[in-house]
Design a protein around this nucleic acid. Structure first.
Lengths: 112, 112
DNA sequence: TAAATATATAATAATATTTGCATATATGAA
DNA sequence: TTCATATATGCAAATATTATTATATATTTA
């Protein structure tokens, strides 16, 4: 999977409804009506989100009679979901004084 | 940082130009004209992407005279960029036969 | 075979994103 | 001061995303 494709995966995943779906699928295979119980959206809308995830190669499904049983397929997803839960400091440490680039020496005063 | 905010950060970051900018900023502070050399986009367009990243709290800047010296601020970013580089298997292992949910037992046959 | 269930597709409308272009602002230099 | 440089902002056009509503398809059950 090249970087362009991975960025596309991030983009498709980065939506509140789809993240919630992915978190649910992390627990295991679920059919659409299982997922419908969790989500407070219409069935067609859910189907569209599943379709978007599938086209990006993020999920796939098995067929069980009239059920479609979705499961995670893209290996980036567990790591991505972990980033959403993990404990982080409020911000990264600011740059050390004073790296230099072609155009100048910084940092000086802070913005605002 | 709550999950909603984190998803917003993902969404703003998930763009090819902005990922390239973030990868460059991972190396250290850069002013706009340093960044301009790398990117094959117009200066106003670059400025707009930087603005989007800043409004999402992903980057910030110092002022050095007439330079704006941008640096990474959001702590999720290093982990996010790592996901774009890391080695992964082509896909996650398919579900084991046969988990059960309320609606059925699956998986059965594979799609298509 | 008809009805019911599970799910998808299509069309539309509303909204958001992206880019290009023109122009504005701020700072330092002459 | 005026000029050049570094960078931002405003606006319009093109495109993409999202949700809604209506309808279609496939499978099981009666």
């Amino acid at each position: 999977m090249n970087e362009t494709k991975r960025i596309e995966v991030l983009k498709v995943a980065a939506h509140p409804v789809r993240i919630k779906l992915l978190e649910e699928l992390m627990k295991g295979v679920k059919c659409v009506s299982d997922l419908e119980e969790f989500m407070e959206i219409s069935q067609p809308n859910l189907s569209q989100h599943l379709s978007a995830l599938r086209h990006a190669g993020i999920i796939d499904f098995f067929i069980d009679g009239r059920l479609r049983c979705y499961f995670l397929r893209n290996p980036l997803i567990p790591d991505l979901l972990e980033i959403l839960k993990k404990d982080y400091p409020e911000e990264l440490p600011g740059p050390e004084c004073c790296p230099v680039t072609k155009k100048g020496t910084y940092p000086h005063e802070r913005r605002r």
